[in-house]
């Protein structure tokens, strides 16, 4: 039963992810992204990671994609003529595809579970308390780094979006 649900969600997620890339209509692409994120949240639920699922829906599906749509609507992008691919794009996408294949191959080769039953151990992200503890003990450094990166991105946006007339304005 759980396997069947997983396959349904996985197919749903992969399908909508493909639709994001392939569809020409920008609004439809954003909506497909929304569906994709909801599918990922569903997979998180199957993994008993309810918090991650809720955060996924709340932050990404609820706010980020809404902002995407907001921007798309403000820019009023219409599906125009598609430009031919640049050489760099083709090379990098082929490279990325090879990396993806390698990654899948390594999963298939080494990903076979040899340790004891993982289901016996309580999953880390399952309860809020264990999640919070892990976040502020084991994974404190990554959290800090991500926070710092976000701060930099925010400052960058402020600098880029504000028009500075001269150096006096900065002072």
């Amino acid at each position: 039963m759980a396997d069947l649900i997983f396959y349904i969600f996985a197919a749903f997620t992969a399908g909508s992810a493909l639709a994001v890339v392939l569809t020409k209509n920008t609004v439809a692409a954003a909506l497909a992204l929304l569906l994709c994120l909801v599918g990922v949240a569903g997979i998180f639920v199957l993994l008993d990671a309810f918090l991650l699922a809720a955060l996924m829906v709340f932050v990404y599906a609820g706010a980020v994609v809404a902002l995407f749509l907001f921007i798309v609507m403000l820019l009023d992008v219409q599906g125009g003529v598609r430009k031919p691919f640049k050489k760099a794009t083709i090379v990098s996408s082929v490279f990325a595809f090879i990396l993806l294949l390698l990654g899948l191959a390594s999963f298939a080769h080494k990903g076979v579970q040899t340790t004891g039953d993982l289901g016996a151990a309580a999953p880390v992200g399952a309860t809020l308390k264990s999640y919070g503890e892990q976040l502020f003990t084991t994974y404190l450094l990554p959290v800090q780094i991500v926070g710092f990166l976000l701060l930099i991105a925010m400052l960058g946006v402020i600098v880029l979006s504000k028009k500075f007339e001269g150096l006096e304005d900065i002072k």
């Binding site: 809720a54 955060l55 829906v57 709340f58 599906a61 609820g62 706010a63 809404a66």
Partner: peptide, 12 residues
């Protein structure tokens, strides 16, 4: 959190 998450989809 679930209430917030699902109700935030109402904007769509």
């Amino acid at each position: 959190l679930a209430v917030f998450a699902v109700s935030s989809l109402g904007v769509y």
